[in-house]
Design a protein around this nucleic acid. Structure first.
Lengths: 231, 231
DNA sequence: CAATCCTGCATTGTATACAATTATGTGTCC
DNA sequence: GGACACATAATTGTATACAATGCAGGATTG
């Protein structure tokens, strides 16, 4: 039985708080660079700084939060290079994972994926793009889980989370509804156990996503300004 | 300059302690399943449990240490499935990374890799197989670093570390000097910028390593016994 | 004699207190 | 008026104190 995310009787453990913060970052309620003061968070969640520190350290291990000694924690703000790194990693891992998933997907897996898609569309209709993005990430995580490679699935989970930050920073408005049916087509390939097709679709889906970002070098004249402002 | 592992004037930060423990696990001085009591470690390193807890949590994120609520921390003891997962991940990531590294390796990179190899041989001659294993891991990490994909390099680092635990648990004595010249051949391919060859050599090297492990199912009759004893 | 419950000890989880570092705001000097 | 220096406040890092949980040993009872 999975423990519920935030229960009231026992004060929230550090894991719950980390998850809550992670969700807020996923949904773009916490923007990159936002300062995460320990005392402030301790008051919000009604726990001591000890617990907050554990949660923040946990998030820093997944690169969602940036901790600098004596300077505190803030929501991470991936550089251009980091952004490219993350997407290169995704393009290496996820197509292969989709291939494995196609061989193993069961009917209930497919049903769950379709539910994610419809939830995502519902969130979009409700003008909650943050939540839609989060659900879109869940979709990718779910495929990794289906592939039954726990280690790689864990990697993908952190990559998806970091992608959320990257999208917050580098998304181009011009790039429109990119993945309207990309996920649908992927699910169909998985349902058909068409491994090659699933791999190809995942690859092109990620390439689409990648190209919807503006990862060109900029501010060559004042490279330190942006870094200074972002904190 | 890398900060030394345990310095006296400033009390060792949690990172230093995590690194020291990680090294001890790498070198098989700490066996899988070993209990890591907070008080004991606090006394050893002359710091409070606060710092120890941070170090242990850090190690638990890389799966080197297993923390169970109210039960404390122990050196992780990967299951057969985890072991297979880790090596599947390595076989997916590292060949591609070696390919990238071949395109980028500089003369100083090659020199550093060769130094690692000779250090490794020196450790073997000094009958210090634990250190040799650690240096062998450094070799793999170094290649990932050369490829200049920080994210993937980070993944590989954790995979290499976990491999050390897996080797401690599942190494077959029969499997003899597996990689005597595997690393040498790999370095040569990198020096020649022969990407295809580097990728192939890395792949076969990992397959060799994988097949030198005994990852067959066992104890089908009493599956819980081993788990019970390992803690 | 075996199984069970109870008690005491050891260890971990959390909160608080203190120390160290950084950030801020004010006053002075040029 | 601007820049530097110092004092003060706020925040983080570490240690310690207390609470809660788990473990072990022994007594009790059937």
């Amino acid at each position: 039985m999975t423990r519920n995310t935030v229960s009231s009787p026992p004060p929230p453990a550090s894991d719950s708080i980390a998850q809550a913060l992670s969700l807020a970052i996923h949904e773009h309620r916490l923007a990159p660079g936002t300062k995460l003061g320990e005392g402030e968070l301790a008051e919000i969640y009604g726990v001591s700084r000890t617990v907050i520190r554990a949660a923040l350290q946990s998030l820093s291990h997944t690169k969602l939060v940036d901790i600098r000694r004596n300077k505190g924690a803030s929501v991470a703000s991936p550089s251009l290079k980091e952004a490219r790194d993350v997407f290169e990693a995704r393009e290496l891992l996820e197509p292969r994972t989709a291939r494995s998933a196609a061989a193993r997907a069961t009917a209930s897996d497919i049903a769950l994926l379709e539910r994610h898609i419809s939830d995502e569309h519902a969130a979009l209709d409700a003008s909650d793009p943050g939540r839609a993005l989060y659900l879109s990430g869940l979709f990718h995580n779910e495929i990794a889980r289906i592939a039954d490679q726990t280690t790689i699935a864990g990697f993908i989970e952190t990559l998806v989370a970091r992608s959320s930050l990257i999208i917050a920073l580098y998304w181009r408005r011009e790039a429109a509804l990119c993945e309207k049916h990309a996920h649908h087509a992927l699910v169909r390939a998985l349902a058909d156990h068409d491994a090659t097709q699933a791999e190809a679709l995942m690859r092109s889906h990620l390439v689409d996503l990648h190209s919807a970002l503006d990862l060109r070098e900029r501010n060559a004249r004042a490279p330190s300004l942006k870094a200074a402002l972002s904190q």
